[in-house]
Write a protein that binds this DNA or RNA. Structure first.
Length: 587
RNA sequence: GGGGUCGUAGUUCAGUUGGCUAGAACGCCGGCCUGUCACGCCGGAGGCCGCGGGUUCGAGUCCCGUCGACCCCGCCA
């Protein structure tokens, strides 16, 4: 039978006491962190969210007996007197280490089973077990820190938008399914047999309607749902900082978000210098082989096609003649790689999808397999790539975008291997001018790169019908260390242009009316030009916390198999519930 | 849907070419100890080697299947 709290009120948290509090009568409430029983004296570390304090039990047989009962993770209350520690017993590792509490009374408020893993240490524990006992894992320093950081960042974001005239407005969780984009989570309607709500993939249409509604500046820290396979940086449900503003140009959004990043990074004591760099999508692909380039390392991709247009090396020559490219990256100091290391690298490249990877070490005769690459050609290539004698040149050939993307993967592989990506460095960039549309071979139609409400660049509108692939969008991503932190665009505010885009996407007028009719109608009632952005809060916190998975910054994440190991979701439901919802499951 | 890594005391791991009566550390339980703070010392308990088949005189170890966690590709307007 546990003791009751009675009339005790917590006077201090377990992280609060300092030398100023010496001689104070205090009541601390918290978890037993560790017990050190020395026989005639027992030390108990008591822990709460705020920290750890040392309790001393001595010169009191009844209390020493009571202390013997204590086990890790019991919840206790103690009343006692704060005393200064002698100089030789101060603990510099604790914020409260100058003092300790001489215990007068202990109350065991709650006993605890021996936990399946140690709470007092951040030691390695399988993630499966951590997720099953999430409430225990959340007690540990790592997640306590991450949740605290997340709270502080969230508050900083709210302060920032409030100060800039943005209203936080909630949008429906029970929304309408829009077949474009990610798979929807559906919620059956009890009242309307056979009909479904969808959980929002993002509040995109709602926030645009808020602009039409004259709200002018909106933000929301909002849960979004996408029924797709999980990754380290993707969960079924995740949180966006969703932003929309009227009368916005891309510059307005950059000018709003850059100082926000400064505010946010202040929370971990880091300066962000603005304006942030910008790179066009086309340049990002060409130079880094990615639309989310990691700019913490150079390793730029260089184009060597022209060198091989007339070379004697038939393979490259042919590829260039057919409109392909020869491109490469220089690995600084890579000349030190042994032959077997290079073989491994070539192997790994092939696993990435390279049909071939040619390496050139300065000062070395051409490989037998590429004998046709004479020393002259190699020298020119090395010079063009600005490779020094210590470096290594890696070359591949093929279609432009595919070759760059492969080299982009290889670039990251090499950068990790060479330790060029410092975890404490933060390299932001805007990626701009995304293509508005992309062609999908499998069903032979155009899809929106971003979403169908994205405005094309004014200069490219005329190409919508004649050369859709060349139309660039007023769309931008914010990229940090190779992670897409967020993306946004200026939206179409003209219903005629919006209809034209739908037509381009192969969506008939009837379909458009069925799916987005309310929105198209809204556009016709006086729509301000508007645009915005959505930032992935989980990814941002993970980067701030130095975590490689967003699960480490979410209180209750799901496994990569979409299961909540603690709560046991998803789970079967009563037949009655199904009947009520007019649902039948397949056997 | 595909590829990969992993699965052995409560936990983290070790366990040669198949020979195991399955080990270590931490944790847990008991004892001793009046200044510890990852307390120390002594003693003890604790294992369906994920699960199911197979090969073998013999399987933690080899093979097949299956389940689970994680990473990647596809997917994520």
């Amino acid at each position: 039978m546990p003791d009751q709290l009675g009339d005790w009120t917590r006077t201090h948290t377990c992280g609060a006491l300092r030398t100023d509090d010496v001689d104070a009568d205090v009541v601390l409430l918290g978890w037993v962190h560790r017990v050190r029983d020395l026989g005639g004296v027992t030390f108990i570390d008591i822990r709460d969210r705020a920290g750890v304090s040392q309790l001393v039990v001595r010169d009191n047989d009844a209390l020493l007996v009571a202390a013997k009962r204590l086990r890790s993770e019991f919840v206790i209350g103690v009343r006692g007197v704060v005393q200064r520690r002698s100089d030789d017993t101060v603990n510099f590792k604790l914020a409260t280490g100058d003092v300790e509490i001489l215990v007068r009374e202990i109350r065991v408020l709650s006993e605890a089973k021996t936990p399946p893993f140690q709470i007092a240490e951040d030691g390695a524990v399988s993630e499966e077990l951590r997720l099953r006992y999430r409430y225990l894992d959340l007690r540990r320093p790592r997640l306590q820190h991450n949740l605290g950081l997340r709270h502080r960042v969230t508050m900083a974001v709210r302060r920032y938008f409030d100060a800039h005239g943005f209203w936080e407005i909630e949008t429906p969780i029970l929304a309408k399914s829009t077949p474009e984009g990610a798979r929807d989570f559906l919620v059956p309607s009890r009242v309307h047999p056979g009909e479904f709500y969808a959980l929002p993939q993002s509040p995109q249409i709602f926030k645009q309607i808020l602009m039409i509604a004259g709200t002018d500046r909106y933000f929301q820290i909002v849960r979004c749902f996408r029924d797709e396979d999980q990754r380290a940086d993707r969960q079924l449900e995740f949180t966006q900082i969703d932003v929309e503003m009227s009368f916005a140009r891309p510059e307005s959004v950059y000018g709003l978000i850059e100082p926000l990043m400064q505010e946010v990074f202040k929370e971990i004591g880091r300066d962000v210098s603005v304006p942030l760099p910008r790179i066009s999508y086309a340049d990002a692909i060409a130079k880094y082989g990615s639309d989310k380039p990691d700019l913490r390392c150079g390793l730029e991709i260089v184009d060597l096609s022209e060198l091989f247009r007339d070379s004697e090396f038939r393979v490259f020559k042919q590829i260039v003649a057919d409109g392909g490219v020869v491109r490469g990256i220089v690995v600084p100091g890579g000349n030190k790689y042994s032959r077997s290391q290079l073989d491994v690298l070539v192997d790994q490249a092939k696993q990435m999808g390279f049909s071939g990877l040619i390496w050139v070490r300065p000062g070395e005769p051409p490989l037998s397999s590429v004998k046709a690459l004479n020393a002259d050609a190699l020298g020119t290539a090395l010079a063009r790539a600005q490779a020094s004698a210590e470096d290594l040149l890696l070359m591949a050939a093929g279609p432009a975008e595919a070759t760059s993307k492969l080299l982009g993967q290889l670039r990251l592989h090499v950068a990790k291997k060479e330790n060029l990506l410092r975890a404490d460095e933060f390299a932001f960039t805007w990626v701009t001018d995304f293509p508005l549309l992309e062609y999908h071979e499998d069903d032979a139609r155009w899809y929106s790169t971003h979403h169908p409400f994205t405005a094309p660049l004014d200069a490219d509108v005329d190409k919508l019908e004649s050369d859709p692939g060349a139309v660039r969008a007023k769309a931008y991503d914010l990229v940090l260390n190779g992670t897409e932190l967020g993306g946004g665009s200026i939206r179409i505010h003209d219903s005629a242009l919006q209809a034209r885009i739908f037509r381009r996407l192969g969506i008939t007028d009837e379909e458009a009316k069925m799916r987005f009719g309310f929105f198209l109608e809204a556009l016709e009632y006086g729509t301000p030009p508007h645009g915005g952005i959505a930032l992935g809060l989980d990814r941002m916190i993970a980067l701030l916390a130095g975590e490689s998975s967003i699960r480490e910054v979410m209180a209750f994440p799901k496994t990569s198999n979409a299961v909540d190991l603690m709560a046991g979701a998803p789970s079967p439901v009563d037949a009655r519930q199904l009947t009520e919802l007019h649902l039948k499951t397949q056997p």
